[in-house]
Amino acid sequence: MEIGNLQQEALALLKNLIETRSFSGEEEGTASLLENWFKKNNIPFYRHLNNVWACNKNFSKTKPTLLLNSHHDTVKPNSGYTRDPFKAVVENDKLYGLGSNDAGGCLVSLLATFTHFYAAEGLGYNIVFAGTAEEETNGKNGISCLLPKMPDINVAIVGEPTLMNLAIAEKGLVVFDAVVKGTPSHAAHPNNNNAIYKSAKALQWFENFSFSEKSEALGEVKLTVTQINAGSQHNVVPAKVDLVIDVRVNDCYTNAEVAEILQKQAPVDEIIPRSLRLNSSSIPPDHDLVKAGIDLGMETYGSPTLSDQAMLKCPSLKLGPGDSTRSHSADEFIYVKEVEEGIEKYIKLLEKALKISY
């Protein structure tokens, strides 16, 4: 299919995706739209739950495999919307609608790119496309359950809105539940072990603490106390104070290492990670995909936001049309031109990086 036709078909699919509800865990309709694309283009595909994936026609077990991945679930629209979030409308080159920017534009652009290369011969890599579910909630029925069913992946492009710049690293995430314990008592009586006063010292420690290793791409590990809860009534000193700590991890540490450091050093009685699976991710700056993108005028940076990259064990690059600052915003939109250019740039990137011959 000619690139111009691919662009038109991709935009038509994006409009249909916008008008089909696909909150995380409720993506049946949009998964069916992806199936219809493959059927229309005579491409064999697979579906597991609400995840849809396909391999290029001339897949070879002797070649490394590149994954093109983006998600088709959305968050729920916020109360600031002035438009119907499920109505795809183009005004002044802006395509409005929930999921248009995060990450529908990336999804259809990668799908169009995969379709462009599907039947090509002489590919240096196998190419696998996966449109996945439950990204917005890091759910168990998204890419994490799909990976064991697909071929081994050697490198991945994860479609998220980056203004088509190269996010060569992405911070991981660990959320900790911490407890500061004290002695419960009546407020009228002396108490030298007040959990609330003790928590003030712990909060100051968290505010001043820093991890020693700084990443060139991602900077420092960012630790933030985001919740605090204690007490039930005015005349009772509580037995404990509960804290929640959000830690954004750079690529100098694994999540397990961060947990070990805080469990040894933090001045609290308990500190327990909710999960260690959302590690930081990156791709070597000298990887062919990165070098090709730079040659095409793309800039590199480290991303503070989380994506399905966290589930991958291979080098991965986050790249896509749209702007991350529009994600989860009211009256979400993507420029039509961004989608069209995204398809063109993805194709040029793969041609250059993977030394594709036709």
Rank of each mutant, 00 (worst) to 15 (best):
P184K: 03
A202G: 06
Y335G: 01
D93V: 07
L146M: 06
D242W: 03
S79W: 05
S280T: 06
E19N: 08
N42L: 10
N126H: 09
Q7W: 05
T183W: 02
K355F: 01
K198M: 01
L173I: 13
S100Q: 04
F176M: 01
K61E: 14
D93A: 11
S303R: 15
H116N: 13
A12W: 00
N191I: 04
V155I: 14
C252W: 01
N194K: 09
W37F: 01
N194G: 05
S327L: 04
R326F: 10
L289M: 08
H287K: 02
A54G: 09
L67N: 06
N193W: 06
S324Y: 04
E257P: 00
R274D: 08
N138M: 12
F176V: 05
T305E: 11
S185P: 01
L350P: 10
F129R: 04
E332T: 07
E26P: 00
E332D: 09
E260P: 01
S144E: 12
L218D: 12
E220W: 03
K345M: 14
A156V: 01
L262E: 08
E216S: 12
V236N: 04
S32R: 14
A310P: 01
E260D: 13
R277Q: 14
N42F: 09
I43Y: 04
R277E: 14
R277H: 03
T82H: 13
E91P: 03
L66I: 05
P161M: 09
N191P: 06
E332S: 10
S60M: 02
I18R: 04
G4R: 02
L13Y: 04
Q204L: 13
N58A: 15
N56I: 07
K291Q: 15
N101T: 07
K87M: 09
D73E: 10
A188N: 12
Y346Q: 01
N138Q: 06
E19R: 09
D177P: 00
W53F: 15
H71I: 05
K355C: 10
C55E: 15
V241F: 09
P304Y: 09
F117Y: 12
A10R: 08
F117Q: 08
P267D: 03
K181Q: 10
V89C: 04
P151A: 05
H234T: 13
A353R: 01
E134R: 12
Y335A: 12
L49D: 15
R83E: 08
V290R: 00
A195S: 15
H48I: 03
K61W: 08
V241Q: 08
Q233G: 04
R248H: 09
W37M: 02
S109V: 05
Q227I: 07
I283R: 00
F45G: 03
